[in-house]
């Protein structure tokens, strides 16, 4: 559901772009903090002089974390090219928000999906440059960041149920917000298009669940193999 340029009102698109930039900065700082956290003392609070200056460096697993993020981004980019036909003359593909968030946490997931969206819009004309803010809100913020908390709340009870619920939440809510943005811009009537949008995207959500489960299984198996 990459919104191209021209579907959205300029004011709305610019506002969402600013919001997406702010959120991206916040998530980068959070990731930066997790990467340096294991040392204990952060940049801001070095009140007792000599500890602070040398405590601020890369933790040991920082390189591994970035590697994981890069690999997740590559996998998601590859799978977003794989369109699967779902109904007559319509196709759907993976968004990968939950996959990214489960692997790298909500902040890492947001950055992964945003980076994929930025590369797609700048080089592949898949989603407009001005509409990038709306796309980041739909797919990275709702599809990855918020759905992670659904997954986290339910994963203690049942892993598969948690994945299913979070995938359905991520895809259908992203579609809903996409439709709301289009409705506000006056491109299409919200009430008219609601049924088509939701029914087609619930099929896409099923696809997303299956692929996410398979990818997480593959990652888990390879991670277990690494420890042996």
């Amino acid at each position: 559901m990459h919104i191209p340029d021209g579907f959205l009102n300029n004011n709305l698109a610019a506002g969402l772009f600013a919001g997406a930039l702010g959120m991206l900065g916040f998530c980068l700082s959070k990731v930066f903090r997790t990467v340096t956290a294991s040392i204990g003392v952060l940049a801001g609070n070095n009140n007792n002089g000599n500890i602070g200056s040398f405590a601020f460096k890369f933790s040991d697993n920082a390189g591994k974390y970035f590697q994981k993020m890069a690999i997740a981004a590559l996998w998601i980019f590859a799978f977003q090219m794989f369109n699967v036909p779902i109904q007559s003359a319509t196709s759907a593909h993976l968004i990968g928000g939950l996959f990214a968030a489960v692997l790298a946490g909500p902040f890492g997931g947001f950055i992964i999906i945003s980076s994929v969206l930025i590369v797609q819009s700048l080089f592949f004309a898949d989603g407009g440059i001005l509409a990038l803010g709306a796309n980041i809100l739909n797919m990275a913020f709702i599809g990855s960041f918020l759905s992670y908390y659904i997954y986290k709340a339910l994963s203690g009870k049942n892993y598969y149920l948690a994945i299913l619920a979070a995938c359905f939440f991520s895809v259908t809510t992203a579609a809903l917000f996409c439709l709301i943005e289009l409705g506000i811009s006056g491109t299409v009537s919200f009430t008219k298009a609601f049924k088509d949008m939701m029914s087609l995207h619930s099929v896409a959500a099923l696809l997303e669940t299956v692929i996410t489960l398979a990818l997480l299984k593959v990652f888990k198996i390879s991670a277990e193999g690494k420890n042996e």
Partner: peptide, 19 residues
């Protein structure tokens, strides 16, 4: 995956384009 996607991926428009 990109190799197989370029061979077998559906060329139909996606949901938003269909809409």
């Amino acid at each position: 995956v990109t190799f197989f996607a370029s061979l077998f991926a559906s060329k139909n428009p996606d949901v938003l384009e269909t809409l």
